[in-house]
Amino acid sequence: MTEEVILRVKGLQTYFHTDEGIVKAVDGVSFDLRRGETLGIVGESGSGKSVTNLSIINMIPSPPGRIAGGEVEFMGTDLLKIPVKDLRAIRGNKISMIFQDPMTSLNPYLRISTQMVETIVLHQDLDKKAAKDKAIDMLKLAGIPAPEKRIDQYPHQFSGGMRQRVMIAMALSCNPEILIADEPTSALDVTIQAQILDIIRGLTAQTGTSVILITHSLGVVAGMCDTICVMYAGRIVERGPTGELFEAPKHPYTQGLIKSVPRLDKASGERLFSIRGQPPNVIDLPDCCPFYPRCDKAMDLCKRKYPASKDLGNGHAVSCWLYTEAK
């Protein structure tokens, strides 16, 4: 990991205009991603992780979605301001994505070769033959046996884990600067999850690709990420280097998340901790700390205003009234 910031997200707001009201799926998210860094975004389902990352490549379905504010600065340009043609040259090329469900993320009607070659030909100066060779190499790197044979098959001829390897191979085939992996293992068997994470880690480390790893499981990010952002109801409530975040979590929500990770070194009879209550509905959310109804340390102030982010040094920051002085 270097100090060069390759992606800077600043004050991102993505809203959905639905019949029930405005869903503030992402409301003021900011983070930096450095070259070679692996950044984890953790949060319960519905906290806005996927929307954040689709916003980065400006792929929010509109209507109903709309990016209401903020900047996504990638290597000096704001991706939210450039024409869609320039954006397409970046998608799948400089910034590529892997999605949660490998069973539905590949086109069932097209051969793997067709789907991989079209990406490579689109972004690189290669003819079809060379692109196919490149695709076979990528499949081999992603751990697919007999890739020169498998590449001419259709997605249904692959298992879930194998399809996710295909997705990884496809996503990395244009040597992207950034790989965004949106819950890449959530739909897979536990035994395969570790393999898939290993492949992502191994392949991106070789090329120095930065990774944004989205997950709802702290266990997944712990072993893999340099930095972790904890998301709650469309906001990043705490961000910090992995080690520090696990040793000295500041936000009550982060503390709760860490306490609720099952651990082998605990007595087996002990009950697993779980945060009480339900995640909030982000429709027409008032300006308050969205976590206060579930928080043991909630104060009067928490219900009235959302706290600004407090920098604790060393890249560690938290948005909580326990640490921020009210002005």
């Binding site: 792929m59 397409r88 998608r91 799948g92 090329n93 590529s96 999605f99 993320s105 086109n107 079209e118």
Partner: peptide
């Protein structure tokens, strides 16, 4: 709305393709 269409867009393909 299918996932694989989202994948196709995320690859940078133009809307016509």
């Amino acid at each position: 709305r299918a996932d694989y269409v989202r994948t196709a867009r995320a690859k940078g393909l133009s809307e016509n393709v």
